[in-house]
Amino acid sequence: MHALLAYVADPADTMQTSYGVITLVQEHRFRLVDEQGAHALFVLAHDAPLEWQDLERLQLAGREVRVSHAPAPGKIAAIAHDVVGHDRIAKQPEQE
């Protein structure tokens, strides 16, 4: 009897980060548009620390977000493990 072994990549090894604005939310699926107008599709991971209602709030706020995601081979959407509001412009210290 032969055992079939499959390598399952650790999400931490393949994790990527994208920035943009959420333009569409449909349950656990959402679309992100970056500054250049490129679109990316994501599915919220089961272990993500937020729910689809949180995605809707971020969409309605029109706030830029940071998405930590991993590829999903054979799928058109990546798996989003975390989505947080992001302020790209850091506050500068006041000049004296």
Rank of each mutant, 00 (worst) to 15 (best):
V33D: 08
P73E: 09
H28W: 11
V84Q: 04
L60T: 04
F30M: 06
V33R: 14
Y7C: 11
G85T: 08
V21F: 14
R31I: 10
P73C: 06
G85A: 13
M15Q: 10
E51Y: 07
D54S: 03
D82Q: 04
L60R: 08
E94M: 12
L5Q: 07
R29L: 07
H28T: 04
L55R: 00
A61G: 00
Q26F: 07
T23P: 12
D54A: 03
V65P: 02
K75V: 12
A70V: 12
L55D: 03
E51I: 06
I76C: 13
A61H: 03
D13W: 04
V8H: 06
D82V: 02
P71N: 12
F42E: 08
G85S: 13
R57A: 10
G85M: 09
H69L: 12
A9P: 06
R31N: 13
A45K: 05
V21Y: 02
D87S: 14
D47R: 10
Y19T: 11
E27A: 14
D47W: 08
A48H: 02
R31L: 11
H39M: 10
A9N: 09
Q95M: 15
Q95D: 10
L32P: 03
V67Q: 06
H39I: 10
F42T: 01
H86I: 08
H46E: 14
T14V: 06
K91I: 15
G20Q: 00
A77S: 09
L32I: 06
L4R: 10
H2R: 11
L60G: 10
